[in-house]
Design a protein around this nucleic acid. Structure first.
Lengths: 211, 211
DNA sequence: GGATTTATGTTGACACTGTAAACTTAGGAC
DNA sequence: GTCCTAAGTTTACAGTGTCAACATAAATCC
């Protein structure tokens, strides 16, 4: 089962996706080539076409996996928030934790993030297709907002339109930091900035004075 | 001066940049090829190398021009805001106008915007180089914040860290709308969303209840 | 004004890419 | 055991980025 006959790879699709991610992490998504990935896996140049329609189909698959991974990270972060404090404080901490996970994912795995949100023509393929995303990060953020409402931290009236505001702040922070547009010298400085911006979002949504 | 001898083009650099922008607007930045641009201009395949070090150098030049164009749009929007009302209201309107111009630029010229913020390895070249950006959009946003302070709409204490918050909201809105992640059915709906999010930013920075 | 230098284009070449068509092989169904 | 089919292979072609060597027009110098 281990070293096979070398003709049938076993799980070439998986291997190609892994190799692609490694190469993209090193050289960037634009640089990525199907043939190089095939070479890494030790397979002929055109073998990928048995598993992906074309180059951008592979990238789309990678993007879909990325969305699932991001969602996982957000769920994990949400569940790891301390259960103490008032329900309002907990809901707020949950929202911040989810947002922080989003930003951290973008910074820890910029290659994946670029593939997910990078090229405009990849996105349309990801949404509304047969095998779409398992868990949608957007819905998780929306869930966090719902929890704010349940906890009484956010009024139902303000809930309307809150998604766009929250997501804009979170996504904007993530992309600006990833692109190096917002510069932070130290890791601590960056963490403080993220915390400050997310707190701004939480407070702003609530509609009271920020701390 | 018009139809030249056909050997020396006259302003090939300019012509290549223009052709590149047209092609990118139609096919996307990833698809763009130097040779195609050369063909459009009616020049040999390798002529571009007299004006640009390589493919990404041309894209970087396009990005730099994009930043200047964005800054122009922001300045124009700022100057076009009505001069009536209290100075605080005016400063606030100015901030919103600048942010709106940023978002509208991203949506009206997505191709340019992608080139500006798209590929990660382009950015580093844009900043900190000999012929850098004429006017920095980031500074214009910063100026708008300063005006808020002068007008008394924003306290000096809150001014610290306000750039990141404001820019995150504006840039996040722009990129999510551009990528089609935030979906709006009508143009009016989109305008309302932009207005709502920018108002959220302005109010949030001030630290009082949103409208 | 003529010669020379220099910027600007051109041609030819190379290695690499995406993608299609025709062929081969291994593993499972009957 | 035979046949079918999914999964790889080889071969081929048009495009691409980029380099080196060459050609031409414009600017500069005497």
């Amino acid at each position: 089962m281990a070293e096979r006959s070398r003709y049938h790879h076993g799980d070439l699709r998986r291997a190609l996706l892994d190799a692609a991610l490694v190469r993209i992490a090193r050289d960037g998504a634009e640089q990525f080539s199907l043939r190089a990935a095939a070479r890494d896996v030790g397979v002929s140049a055109t073998a990928a076409y048995r598993h992906f329609a074309d180059r951008s189909d592979l990238l789309a698959a990678l993007a879909m996996e990325g969305f699932t991974a991001l969602a996982d990270a957000m769920v994990t972060a949400r569940e790891a928030t301390p259960r103490r404090g008032t329900s309002r404080a907990r809901a707020r901490a949950g929202f911040v934790a989810v947002g922080r996970a989003y930003v951290e994912f973008a910074l820890a795995q910029p290659a994946r993030f670029v593939v997910m949100f990078g090229a405009a023509h990849i996105r349309p393929r990801v949404r509304g297709r047969a095998g779409t995303i398992d868990r949608d990060p957007y819905e998780l953020l929306s869930d966090a907002l719902d929890e704010l409402v349940v906890a009484g931290e956010l009024t139902a009236a303000r809930r309307r339109g809150a998604e766009a505001k929250a997501w804009a702040v979170v996504h904007g922070t993530a992309t600006l930091l990833r692109d190096g547009a917002l510069v932070c010298r130290t890791r601590a400085e960056r963490a403080a900035l993220v915390e400050s911006v997310l707190g701004f979002a939480a407070d702003g949504l609530r509609g009271r004075a920020a701390r």
